[in-house]
Design a protein around this nucleic acid. Structure first.
Lengths: 94, 94
DNA sequence: TAAACAAGTTTATTTTATAAACCAAATTAT
DNA sequence: ATAATTTGGTTTATAAAATAAACTTGTTTA
């Protein structure tokens, strides 16, 4: 029997975002966009979903006069990521 | 930069099926259904996709008078599964 | 001051996953 | 014997998700 995989994390782009934020603690929208190769629209949507779930927090600030969106992983997000890995391992026979 | 995740494997049910077949070498439809908890319809569709991709082979035989669908992983499928794990690991920081 | 660019968001489209409905044959109950 | 149920699936319809295209707002640059 397989435990269900958290659907919020079992998504290529959202997983990549979480992967970045786990190591980086903080990252700006354009950086995430570049690292993941996502389009801005897709990234925006996926960040919203992670944010709504409480997995990340999104801070909207300014860098000089330009808007700047900063993302950070939350404790809830960290826990979800770790749990996801544990469950996933049972699928991979690792 | 993240390498793309094989979309055929990055699916909860198909991954579970592959996971079973990697260890089992051979499994019948009802067994896979039971182990994965999938509905017959969903399983049928996903097995088709894996089969069309050449990741598994599906043999239709009879067990006495009853139809019996046997699934096996192919070398192509094994390779794809291993590759998928390698790529996935870069997302998990494992 | 008009054109191009940066940083996103919103909306529309495509793809995917999933289950409901269905089918054929075999078994069981009446 | 035949009606009802079960087994072993497939096909089709629906719901959800991913993704990109189009758009917005403000800022630089020509």
């Amino acid at each position: 029997m397989f435990q269900p995989l958290d659907p919020l994390l079992h998504s290529e782009l959202r997983l990549a975002v979480m992967s970045l934020l786990i190591s980086a603690e903080e990252a700006e929208f354009p950086y995430i966009k570049e690292q993941t190769g996502a389009t801005a629209g897709n990234l925006s949507v996926q960040l919203d979903k992670l944010s709504t779930a409480g997995y990340i927090e999104v801070e909207k600030t300014f860098k000089g006069k330009k808007p700047c969106t900063i993302c950070r992983i939350t404790p809830v997000g960290q826990k979800a990521f770790e749990d996801y890995i544990q469950v996933l391992k049972t699928y991979l026979n690792v």
